[in-house]
């Protein structure tokens, strides 16, 4: 009972803030008489979202699919690749600095290349999402694996555990806090990558994703629809981030201090 009450309070505070902000926006636009082309009122945006609900629903589904698939790909490649790089000294020396530097490269600029390789459509959006999201996972996996307590390593060394067993029972579980941090960053980036991928790969039709809806609405000067689509992009990001955070918390709550106060 106490937990539910605390959880309700956690949710209520930001909700009230959002409502207040929207209210201020509404009043400000009305008082200052700003053109709806520049900044439509929240009520207008809401109305437009409702009347375009079918298009927006399909678009959200498309973008969510791309972001989720890109995120999953990034997680898989990041964790496996990071484990291999951390395990092989030659790779660690050569590829680890590279992975850190590559994080600085604005990878969204690679998106047009992906169109050349994968064509116009969902695969490009997935690939763009994965490319942007993979490096935080890779870097945090390597960091996590490198900082496994050498004392615990010795416990496994004494038991003459083979490397694969040690990875499964020591290295991976010990790195989960770091990997979860990387995955949380990747969740946000995966949505950005997917939308950039959609911008450049421009696939339309009945299942046009949010990125395309944003572009089309902009060209048609329907600012309220741009806002609506952007809001749904944010929702996709929130949901993905929320799912990853919750899964991370479930994995860590029994032993890791980072999960002890998460829900307060």
């Amino acid at each position: 009972m106490k937990g539910t009450l605390a959880a309700m309070r956690t949710i209520t505070a930001p909700l009230v803030a959002v409502v207040l902000l929207l209210g201020c926006w509404q009043v400000a636009v009305m008082v200052a008489d700003i053109s709806p082309f520049l900044l439509p009122r929240p009520t207008v945006i809401a109305h437009s979202m409702w009347s375009n609900r079918e298009v927006l629903f399909d678009a959200t589904l498309s973008t969510a699919t791309a972001a989720l698939a890109g995120f999953a790909l990034a997680a898989l490649v990041g964790i496996i690749g990071g484990s291999v790089i951390a395990a092989v000294p030659v790779l660690r020396r050569s590829l680890y600095p590279l992975a850190t530097i590559l994080q600085m490269v604005p990878l969204v600029a690679v998106a047009p290349l992906l169109v050349i390789w994968l064509g116009f459509g969902l695969p490009t959006a997935i690939a763009a999402s994965a490319v942007v999201a993979v490096f935080p996972v890779l870097a945090s996996t390597i960091d996590g694996l490198r900082s496994v307590d050498p004392g615990l390593r010795e416990v496994f060394l004494l038991a003459e555990a083979p490397p694969w067993t040690r990875w499964r029972k020591l290295d991976l579980p010990a790195s989960i806090p770091a990997i979860v941090t990387g995955l949380r960053i990747a969740a946000g980036l995966a949505v950005i990558g997917a939308i950039v991928g959609e911008f450049v790969s421009g696939y339309g039709g009945s299942r046009a994703p949010l990125g395309i809806v944003v572009m089309t609405a902009m060209r048609e000067a329907r600012t309220e629809l741009v806002f609506g689509a952007v809001a749904l992009c944010a929702v996709v990001g929130f949901v993905l981030f929320g799912v990853v955070s919750t899964l991370g918390w479930l994995l860590l709550r029994r032993w890791h201090s980072s999960a002890q106060h998460e829900l307060e």
Partner: peptide, 27 residues
């Protein structure tokens, strides 16, 4: 041959029972 180190060196994600059983599990 078994070693008991200066620090307990337990796996923090395992219960006491699972920690004690670890060498058997690895064997």
């Amino acid at each position: 041959l078994a070693v008991c180190f200066q620090e307990a060196r337990l796996l923090p994600w395992r219960t006491a029972l699972e920690n004690v059983a670890l060498p058997l599990e690895l064997a």
